[in-house]
Design a protein around this nucleic acid. Structure first.
Length: 459
RNA sequence: GGUCCGGUGGCAGAAUGGUGAUGCAGCGGACUGCAAAUCCGCGUACGUGGGUUCGAUUCCCGCCCGGACCUCCA
């Protein structure tokens, strides 16, 4: 990956949800940056809402890797969850086969989107021992208690509870939508361990056969791979409360004196056609639904054209616009042969360093494209370097414009028709020439007559 | 009901206490047999009412609108 030259390295700023401010990023250890993101619960195909958090993490870690010598990026896979149990039952398959399949689906789709894999991708079910050890510590230190075969975290035992999400524990009761289990000491207490019946996945434990609560896995896995305190913890804004608040409470109580995550990053949610994505509204889109209709890079560019902390409204016209932008960028690259490697442009890199302002960074590419089209090879090289940094423009122009021939005419067919059309044009038989062009257009092939002859591309 | 986030031109979307990026679409022109692509030019915005200020889109308050979250299940 292209490195930015060190001469004008800008200060990276990040918006920290806990401090509610965009702040200079100060690493705990500049020699080794440690990042944790909450990954998917594997029970279905990943959808385009999932994609957003993955993409934020991808941009962040790419940027960190250019700024610091070592980055460890951990993103978990949640493979024990009651949604998984329920889905496996519906499907009539066993849990392991469901989670194995959907984990592979997730990896396949994120690979297709050009995401860099995390350095470590731990699974919850492989870390039950670490979770139990943490729970035991919390019980021993009085931060957790057993009740009705559950182990619950005692919110009252942690004075700072609510600081991350900005909630007052006293007010958590008001308006609560759910009935409070009678065995809780405090209505805000949450489950660390819960009993499993015969049908449910379970592990032996000091508290009986059971399974972990939702939040403990991330505390256990981040601790195992990143230690007591690490730099950045990220995820969707829907996880801020209760998930991240609870993770933080558990971890800080389990490891007194630690900081847990130093910066909390949360990406905003995704809408589809202006509405929340849901199966009942019929606007639920998996990554595959989109990738069937659009190049992965177009989806990627579309997502990157909105800041990660702003709500993103998915529309097909937005993806098509992104595709057109990439067409133009590729034309700009196609105007040059043998492009050299280039540094990332300063203004592009500076925008990314301002809390991952991908939209601002992308805006700097348009003047480069214009310059490249008018003959500036250095601009073309910079355009390509910047695009590739964001996982774009990874194909050659030829692959971009002429690849993906799954259901179009063959190349030799096209070439033959172009030759025939050339003869027709020479004979000034424009009716036949236009007929050929229209026929190909109907099959998704666009002809362009230029000074150097006729070229073609797939639309 | 509570907490938090946001409301920028037809659309998408940045920055910014003082000539308001960028892209798409649109319009006019060049080029072309006609297109496409490319190039040149043009237009339109800061939800609303107050306040602070010499000056606010940018800061503060109210209101309206949209969104997220408000926890063992979902």
């Amino acid at each position: 990956m292209a490195k930015h030259s060190l001469r004008t390295l800008p200060q990276l700023t990040l918006h920290d949800s806990q401090r509610r401010a965009t702040l200079p990023f100060v690493p705990l250890d500049p020699e080794h940056i440690r990042v944790y993101y909450c990954g998917p619960t594997v029970y279905d195909l990943p959808h385009i809402g999932n994609l957003r958090a993955m993409l934020s993490a991808d941009v962040l870690t790419r940027l960190l890797r250019t700024l610091y010598p070592q980055v460890t990026f951990v993103r978990n896979i949640t493979d024990v969850d009651d949604k998984i149990t329920a889905r496996a039952r519906e499907n009539g398959e066993d849990i392991a086969s469901l989670t194995t399949r959907t984990t592979l689906d997730f990896q396949h789709d994120t690979d297709a989107m050009g995401m860099m894999r995390p350095d470590i991708e731990p699974r919850a079910t492989h870390h039950i021992g670490e979770m139990q050890a943490m729970i035991a510590r919390l019980v021993a230190s009085g931060h957790a208690y057993e009740a009705n075969n559950h182990v619950l975290f005692s919110v009252a035992s942690f004075a700072d509870y609510g600081a991350l999400s900005g909630r007052d524990p006293e007010e958590l009761l008001a308006g609560a939508r759910v009935e409070v289990a009678p065995w809780k000491r405090d209505p805000g207490d949450f489950v660390l361990w819960k009993p499993s019946d015969e049908q449910q996945p379970g592990w032996d434990s000091p508290w009986g056969r059971g399974r972990p609560g939702w939040h403990i896995e991330c505390s256990a896995m981040s601790h195992r791979y990143l230690g007591d305190s690490f730099d950045i913890h990220g995820g969707g804004s829907d996880l801020l409360f209760p998930h991240h608040e609870n993770e933080r409470a558990q971890s800080l109580c389990c490891f007194p004196g630690s900081q847990f995550a130093n910066y909390w990053l949360h990406n905003a949610m995704l809408l589809v056609n202006g509405e929340k994505m849901s199966k009942s509204l019929g606007n639920f889109l998996t990554m595959r639904d989109v990738l069937d209709r659009s190049p992965a890079e177009a989806l990627r560019l579309f997502f990157l054209s909105t800041h990660y902390r702003s709500t993103l409204n998915f529309t097909w016209s937005g993806v098509e616009e992104a595709k057109k932008t990439l067409d133009r960028f590729q034309r700009a690259l196609a105007a040059h042969d043998d492009l050299p490697e280039a540094d990332l442009p300063d203004d592009f890199f500076a925008a990314l360093c301002e809390d991952l302002n991908t939209a601002g960074a992308l805006a700097t590419l348009h003047p480069l494209a214009a310059a490249a089209l008018s003959g500036d090879a250095e601009a073309a090289a910079q355009l390509r370097a910047a695009g590739r940094f964001l996982g774009l423009l990874t194909m050659t122009p030829d692959e971009w414009f002429r690849g993906n021939a799954s259901n179009g005419p063959e190349e030799n067919e096209i070439e033959a028709l172009i030759t025939e059309r050339l003869d027709a044009r020479k004979a000034r038989n424009f009716a036949r020439a236009d007929e050929i062009r229209n026929e190909l257009a109907g099959q998704g092939v666009i002809l362009e007559d230029g000074p150097q002859g006729t070229t073609w591309r797939r639309g």
